[in-house]
Amino acid sequence: MANIAHLLGPVELETVKLKEIINTVEGTLLTKQLKQDLDIKTCGAADLMSDALSLMKPGSLLITGLVNLQSIRTAEMADLAAIIFVRGKIPGPDAIDLANELGIPLIASHIGMYELCGRLYKAGLVPTMH
């Protein structure tokens, strides 16, 4: 049978609210209480910022173990929605200040990269990378 998916127009992806994401990853919001109702559809994980910059769609959630200022800058340049830091890593105050200034929510989670990706995949976030 012919594939007719392309005739049906773009598929409306389901979205997940930022506060649900924080619950799912048992995370803590490090930035000001902003954008809790933000709808997020797509997600990607990267420790290499060039990968995040080239592969992630605007509005995506970034999962990373990289806690320096450059992860915040990457989110700024690529118009990413928010960042989750895995395995209990917490960025320095300068990174948190910059994220507050730019309005990018930062979330810290004690869960490791593999499990955290699995949880968010199950929660309905779609891979941003292709």
Partner: peptide, 15 residues
């Protein structure tokens, strides 16, 4: 270790 220097930068720019 800081998340850069993997030799992808120029390719990204080109894209």
């Amino acid at each position: 270790e800081l998340g850069f220097g993997a030799g992808m930068g120029l390719n990204n720019i080109k894209r």
